[in-house]
Nucleic acid binder design. Structure first.
Length: 104
DNA sequence: GCAATGACTTGGT
DNA sequence: CACCAAGCCATTG
């Protein structure tokens, strides 16, 4: 019979898993690559609900301004993970745009 | 079934 | 650069 299309969380997981080491991408880009271009907010919600022991590179996801959307301790954790991943920041905590799936 | 929620985005000031 | 308003829409309770 007909295969059901995978749910949005599943498609989002797949896209995030494909982000190369040393690069980052945005919520909006993930939504676009997952076939739901208007659902950037859902991408954020899905990431928030990820188990803390997830093997997905959730830390490679930033907002459209190239900044980390998390705050407080979570912000620190993501920034450390990105630095360890080889991602550079500008003086105002902006990510150096090495974007995966960026629209050309 | 419906209103509230939100790790977003764009555009304006 | 910082902040605010409106648009967006699947998921939650």
């Amino acid at each position: 019979m007909e295969d059901c299309e995978p749910s949005l969380p599943i498609r989002v997981y797949t896209v995030i898993a494909s982000i190369p080491e040393g690069k980052v991408t945005t919520y909006g880009t993930i939504a676009r690559l997952a076939g739901a271009p208007r659902n950037s907010r859902q991408v954020g919600t899905i990431l928030q609900r990820l188990p803390k022991d997830s093997k997905l590179p959730w830390f490679r996801v930033v907002n459209s301004q190239g900044k980390i959307s998390l705050t407080g301790p979570d912000y620190i954790r993501q920034k450390k993970a990105l630095l360890a991943d080889g991602v550079l920041f500008t003086r105002s905590d902006r990510i150096n745009f090495k974007i995966y799936g960026w629209p050309d």
